[in-house]
Amino acid sequence: MAAEGEKKPVLEMVQADGGDEGCVTFVLHNEDHTLGNSLRYMIMKTVDVDFCGYTITHPSESKINFRIQTRGGVPATEPLRRGLRDLTEVSQHVLNTFQARVDEFKERQEQPMD
């Protein structure tokens, strides 16, 4: 469990008693559909993942319960870590492509002036 008290927790892990580490509910604080749904998509693209889904606990609580169940004894933190890395990589590629296209577009707009 993340430290309680002064500092607000960012990420918590909840496991059923006696459950294996392949079935974990992560509590992501201060997140909603924005990260929840995109991360769920990335994690569901992984082969070892049996189930991945999330719920928003209550409209007035700003946290989501993010559930991952894996196959073959893979710890649930692995697909989560991979999903986050993949999503960063995707965003980086989108950012690079977007900036390149914007630069091209701006150049093209300037040229007809000559």
Binding site: T34, L35, S38, L87, T88
Partner: peptide
């Protein structure tokens, strides 16, 4: 979005 991922 990248910052969010890095945070977790």
């Amino acid at each position: 979005l990248m910052t969010k991922c890095q945070r977790f």
